[in-house]
């Protein structure tokens, strides 16, 4: 094994992971700040504005506070499972970022192509969906191992909710895959560029289904039954300190991932709106990559603002209503949409 091989299989991916994780962690941390600020603005408040200018150091202060808190393990819990459960919630959300393609590849002067992605997996979307199903283990284990009934009920609610919304979400993603003809995220973006339309328009139903089930998947208002911050008791009742922070960060990472994936699938990913990307890329490749990342971030921010907006507006659904929406409304819509998209693909978009 020579140096180049090691670099290719271990070195470059590791460097890319580090380069990716630093901004992702920052974005996730500042998402919390952004949500608190914006939510406050919706409620005629100002939100956290004391720590640093505009409260920008608030996430660091929060993290420090949670880090220094006592790590309590309840007496009649299962300590081992109780301790590893947060990892299940935390880890899948971050691994999902590995397959996201952030911009058009960067070509070095010597002709080497560096794609802006850690792992451009063929079955990228399937990989993310599989991982996001894994995160339910974190919730169920947390509820079960806490040794208390309230977290157990919280985690059971969460389990049925995630089952109910995993299916429509997958079906809405399948519609996109059908339109693009590939599971690979960079291919999906390329297909949208080629079509000239973002999949928001041919797949408007799929977009709606994805949006609703994405909110439900990430356990946010109006589907935040597993947590139920204000009234009912959620699955992480017994957690404190850093382990609670893992759930918290995992949730926000999930929201970020869902925004990013939704952007890639329905809003054209790193495609710069109103600009012919291919022509620009031929002329200024670096500029296109940088602008592409900016466009990507701006579109994903739209998703984030939307999520916060609905959190500020809508009340929580009752449990039976939630399951009804999942199984009786979203699932048939997603299935019908699948047929529609297939016909569309067959006749119009060939």
């Amino acid at each position: 094994m020579d140096f180049a091989t090691i670099m290719q299989y271990a070195g470059w991916p590791l460097i890319k992971i580090v380069i990716l994780l630093i901004p992702v962690f920052t974005v996730v941390a500042y998402m919390v700040w952004f949500e608190r600020r914006l939510l406050a603005f919706f409620q005629s408040r100002l939100g956290p504005n004391r720590v640093g200018p505009l409260g920008l150091i608030q996430p660091i202060a929060d993290g420090l506070k949670l880090f220094l808190k006592e790590d309590l393990v309840p007496m009649n819990s299962r300590p081992f499972l109780f301790k590893i459960a947060p990892i299940f919630a935390f880890f899948p959300a971050f691994v999902g970022f590995a397959i996201v393609s952030w911009a058009l590849p960067w070509v070095t002067p010597s002709g080497k192509v560096h794609p802006f992605v850690v792992a451009d997996v063929d079955l990228g979307i399937l990989f993310v969906l599989a991982l996001s199903s894994l995160s339910i283990f974190g919730i169920i284990l947390a509820g079960w191992s806490s040794g208390s009934k309230y977290p157990l009920f919280g985690s059971l609610r969460s389990a049925s909710q995630m089952l109910a919304y995993e299916v429509p979400m997958t079906l809405s993603v399948v519609a996109v895959v059908l339109l693009a003809g590939s599971f690979r995220l960079s291919d999906i973006v390329a297909a949208q560029e080629k079509l000239g339309w973002y999949y928001l328009f041919p797949g408007i139903l799929a977009f709606g289904v994805y949006l609703v089930s994405a909110v439900a998947e990430s356990n946010r208002v109006p589907f935040d039954l597993p947590e139920g911050e204000s009234e009912i008791i959620g699955f992480h009742t017994e957690y404190s300190g850093m382990r609670f922070a893992w759930y918290f960060v995992g949730e926000y990472a999930n929201v970020t991932l869902i925004s990013v994936l939704g952007t890639t699938m329905f809003l054209g990913g790193y495609d710069i709106p109103f600009v012919n990307d291919a022509a620009l890329y031929a002329a200024h490749p670096e500029l296109t990559s940088v602008l592409g990342v900016c466009a990507f971030a701006a579109k994903a921010a739209l998703f984030a603002v939307f999520f916060i907006w609905i959190r500020a507006t809508w009340p929580r659904y009752r449990y039976d209503q939630l399951l009804k929406i999942g199984w009786i409304v979203l699932l048939p819509i997603a299935l019908a949409n699948l047929v529609l998209v297939a016909l569309l693909k067959l006749w119009l978009l060939r």
């Binding site: 406050a40 603005f41 919706f42 005629s44 408040r45 907006w309 500020a312």
Partner: peptide, 11 residues
């Protein structure tokens, strides 16, 4: 709710 974003804050 969106109307409240630009309104003066009570804080």
């Amino acid at each position: 709710t969106s109307r409240f974003v630009a309104k003066p804050k009570v804080t």
